[in-house]
Structure formats: structure tokens, C-alpha cells
């Protein structure tokens, strides 16, 4: 008879296999995100090879190449990657917390809150830079709190939260439109650039704040991955399993909203990335494993790919947000139709 330590039971074999698949798929997605980012750097008016990119990185490339790669393309690709990851992670944590794919922050009004705050700052108060950044983050947080407060009834319920959020989003979008109509011509352009979600202005100065906030947000949420997972079993079961449910929900919401608002303040709201990343990760990994990193990687891939298509394949310079909308819109319609068929 073999000892039990060398012979693994069917359950533990299956569990190990699931874990291995999970790591492999997540790893492949992260590699994929890096590959598309390199592609983004290499493509353009002048196409650069990997050797050019490495030369530019270690400072041995000729001036024109170095400038083009290091000053124009590299920061843009990095910002696309970082912010894509931020959108993806925030989307996943909201969707999982509320047990509803429609509960992503771009649908339930949190992005709309950041938008209103930003557009008001630009058109009414003439803010820019850090102040604008701060106000947008505040707008996202306040909206999140308002949606939670309005939908709170002995706890947080996914469906009510989604419906209240959609209502709040429409209200805030109306305010944004009103602000835009009565704004000065010059401000309208700035505000429009904010609202469409664009990487055209990405620069090195964006990389650090967005990168730090996404890294910190990821680490915080990664420590809570299992808690987030248990919360899907409902308030009572989660409490019974030792989760401080309300505290966990608040921490997850606050961390996600701060991270999301900062990336939104960096690129503007790139439509549907939050909404799409989590479900795609779940499709690839199987539904029931914490897939924060995978959702982040998919967010990166979506934004970078959309940027490549927007820059080079679409005619003229289309903002990246328009590309993601073209994909995200139909998916939203399909998912809503599916949800309605099943009953919300």
C-alpha cells in the first residue's frame, strides 16, 4: 500500500490541475499584454523592430528613433497597459462583489460621476492638472457612495444597485451634457477630449501616478481575493464563514473606485473595458477562481489592441474609446438580453 503523501486523491488532482491551468492562463494573458504593448510601440509611421526598442531603452538608438520610441510611443503603450489593467481590475471587483456582470463601474454611474466632476472643473472652474485629477477622483467616490446609499437596504443587493446605478448614470450624463452646452468653445474641446477616452496625450508624467495606483489597488484587492469570492455566496453564508461582510464590501468599493478614478482621470473613460474584462477572464479561466490578475491583463490587452486599431487600421485618428465602444456596445446588448430572459 502506498503512503497517502505520494498518492493524490482524485479531488486533489483535479484541484491541482485547475490551479495549474489558472496560473498558465493568467501567465499567458500577462505575456499577451506585454506582446501587444510591444507591438503598439513598434507600429507606426516608421515600423521599429524589437532590436530598435531595446536599443532605445538602453540609450544606444539614434536620436530620431530614440525620440519616437521613448517620448511618443513607449509612454502611450505603458499608459494604455496600466490604465487597461486598472479598468479591468475595478470592473472585475465590482462585478464579483455585486454578483452581476452589469454592475461594472462604467455602467452604474461611477465613471459618469468622475466625468461630471471633471467637466464641471474644466468648463466652470477652469481647473487642470492635479486639481482636475483630484476632483475627478472625488466625483467617482462621491457617486459610488451615493449609489450605495440609495440602494442600501439591510445590505447591498446586486440588482437594486445596478438599477439605481444606471439611473444615477443617466442623471449625471444629462448634467454633463448640460455643462457642455453652456461651456466656452475652447473648454468644450478640452472636455470632449476628456469624455471620449484618449491616449493621444499620454506622457511619461502619467505613467507613475497611474502605475502606482493600479499596483497598490491590485495588491489590496489580491489580499481580499478569497473574501471577494466567498461574498458571492451571499451575506449570511459569507458572515458564517468568517467574513466581516460590510467592512469587506466598503474596502473593496473604496479601493476599486480610487484606482478607477485615477486611471479614468489619466485617459478619460475608455468605454466598456471594465465591463468586458471580467466576463472574458471568467470565460477563459472557468467561473470560480479569483481572476483579478487575469481581468487586469485582459483590460490591458483590450485597451492596447483598441489603440493599435484606432491609430493604424481605422482611417484617421479615432479615439481609443470609440473602438472599445464598437465592441462593448453589442456585448452589452447581448448580455442585457440574456439577463432579461432569465429574469433580473
Amino acid at each position: 500500500m502506498k503512503s497517502s503523501s505520494t498518492e493524490l486523491s482524485p479531488y486533489s488532482l483535479r484541484r491541482r490541475r485547475r490551479q495549474r491551468t489558472h496560473f498558465l492562463v493568467t501567465g499567458a494573458l500577462i505575456v499577451g499584454a506585454i506582446v501587444v504593448a510591444l507591438l503598439d510601440v513598434s507600429l507606426g509611421h516608421e515600423v521599429y523592430g524589437l532590436n530598435d526598442i531595446f536599443a532605445a531603452l538602453n540609450g544606444s538608438a539614434p536620436g530620431g528613433t530614440a525620440f519616437s520610441i521613448m517620448q511618443l510611443r513607449m509612454p502611450r503603450a505603458l499608459v494604455a497597459m496600466i490604465c487597461g489593467a486598472g479598468f479591468g481590475i475595478a470592473g472585475y471587483s465590482f462585478q464579483t462583489l455585486l454578483g452581476n456582470v452589469l454592475a461594472s463601474p462604467d455602467i452604474i454611474g461611477i465613471t459618469a460621476g468622475a466625468n461630471v466632476a471633471a467637466v464641471a472643473s474644466i468648463t466652470v472652474f477652469g481647473l487642470s492638472g492635479t486639481a482636475l485629477f483630484g476632483v475627478a477622483v472625488g466625483g467617482g467616490l462621491v457617486t459610488a457612495c451615493a449609489v450605495i446609499a440609495l440602494s442600501w437596504r439591510n445590505g447591498l443587493l446586486g440588482t437594486r444597485f445596478v438599477l439605481v446605478g444606471i439611473g444615477v448614470a443617466s442623471l449625471l450624463n444629462a448634467v454633463t451634457s448640460w455643462l457642455m452646452i453652456r461651456a466656452d468653445q475652447w473648454d468644450v474641446q478640452t472636455a470632449t477630449r476628456w469624455l471620449t477616452g484618449s491616449l493621444a496625450d499620454a506622457s511619461w508624467s502619467d505613467v507613475a501616478p497611474a502605475g502606482i495606483s493600479v499596483a497598490v489597488g491590485y495588491l489590496c484587492l489580491a489580499t481580499m481575493a478569497h473574501t471577494l469570492d466567498v461574498l458571492r455566496l451571499g451575506t449570511y453564508t459569507a458572515t458564517g464563514l468568517g467574513v466581516r461582510v460590510n467592512r469587506a464590501r466598503i474596502v473593496i468599493v473604496v479601493v476599486s473606485v480610487i484606482m478607477l478614478s485615477i486611471v479614468t482621470a489619466t485617459t478619460g473613460p475608455i468605454a466598456f473595458v471594465s465591463f468586458l474584462s471580467g466576463p472574458i477572464a471568467a470565460r477563459l479561466l472557468g467561473n470560480h477562481r479569483p481572476s483579478i490578475a487575469a481581468s487586469g491583463a485582459i483590460g490591458s490587452i483590450i485597451v492596447v489592441l483598441a489603440d493599435i486599431i484606432a491609430q493604424h487600421l481605422a482611417s484617421g485618428h479615432v479615439p481609443v474609446g470609440v473602438m472599445t465602444s464598437l465592441v462593448g456596445g453589442p456585448v452589452l446588448v447581448i448580455l442585457v438580453a440574456g439577463v432579461l430572459r432569465k429574469g433580473v
Partner: peptide
């Protein structure tokens, strides 16, 4: 074990 718990 609550009454009718929610199964993901």
C-alpha cells in the same frame, strides 16, 4: 446554513 442560500 441559511435558508435557501444563493448558489453562484
Amino acid at each position: 446554513l441559511p435558508q435557501s442560500p444563493s448558489t453562484p
